[in-house]
Nucleic acid binder design. Structure first.
Length: 231
DNA sequence: ACCCAGGTGGCCC
DNA sequence: GGGCCACATGGG
């Protein structure tokens, strides 16, 4: 059933090729930085912040950790919540450097569930950021759940849960264990959410709406006016 | 002038 | 366990 939704979304929106990176020398690390910076922010703003870091060649674990906090704050300012995010980046870097010597291969060699627990215990890394790191930087078969996915579950009650862990397990158990599929599916759900699942009623072209040419049987995925998700 | 974004932690009950 | 709040910039 989930794979059917995936097909509809892929057919409608096309391949998203997540995670977007520009770095050739340290793309996985850039993904981790982006995963923290994109918390409750638009990707456009995160791109500016990453560009600022990149211009100073700071997409590198130890260089970034050695940077003064106030300097870091100024560079990531466009991504919003900049003081909080500077602190969160530094908590991750402290963990990453002290525990794994800033070595990505070493970190991702850790047994998945153990690493997941470690990441979740880092200040500022919650379930979505943690799983984004595991999936997109570490290529681990972990499905990323976000506010859009929860929204989808509310309106398409195949899962019967709106709790992060339960929804994640449902997706992981009911899809082929395919990292690239996980990457694309999550990206497509975000694309759907950005286009159709916000406060406005669903557009006629929504692939999850009845009557649409890509329709599946979903009653109503629209969000009530003034409904707030994720806070 | 609102409202929102690829969340998270703290505090309260 | 759930409900509310702060955090902050840039775009619609």
């Amino acid at each position: 059933m989930l794979i059917k939704i995936y097909d509809k979304l892929l057919n409608r929106f096309g391949n998203q090729n997540w995670w977007p990176t520009t770095s050739i020398q340290n793309p996985e690390f850039e993904i981790i930085v982006g995963a923290i910076l994109t918390q409750q922010a638009t990707w456009k703003n995160v791109e500016i912040a990453i560009k600022n870091l990149k211009e100073k060649n700071l997409i590198e674990q130890k260089l970034l950790y050695n940077l003064q906090t106030t300097k870091l704050e100024q560079l990531i300012k466009p991504s919003g919540f900049f003081k909080v995010k500077a602190k969160r980046l530094r908590s991750f870097l402290k963990f990453f450097i002290e525990k794994y010597d800033g070595n990505l291969k070493k970190m991702f060699k850790t047994p998945l569930q153990k690493l997941r627990k470690e990441l979740l215990s880092v200040h500022g890394i919650g379930p979505e950021t943690c799983d984004s790191i595991l999936l997109y930087a570490g290529n681990k078969p972990v499905f990323v759940i976000d506010a859009y996915t929860i929204r989808l579950c509310k309106r398409y009650p195949v899962i019967g849960s709106e709790k992060y862990e339960e929804v994640r397990e449902f997706f992981e158990k009911n899809l082929p264990k395919d990292v690239n599929l996980f990457k694309e599916f999550h990206a497509l759900i975000v694309e759907l959410g950005k286009n159709y699942c916000k406060t406005k009623p669903l557009c006629k072209k929504c692939p999850l709406k009845r009557g649409c040419k890509h329709a599946i049987s979903v009653n109503n995925l629209s969000v009530k006016k003034n409904e707030r998700i994720g806070r």
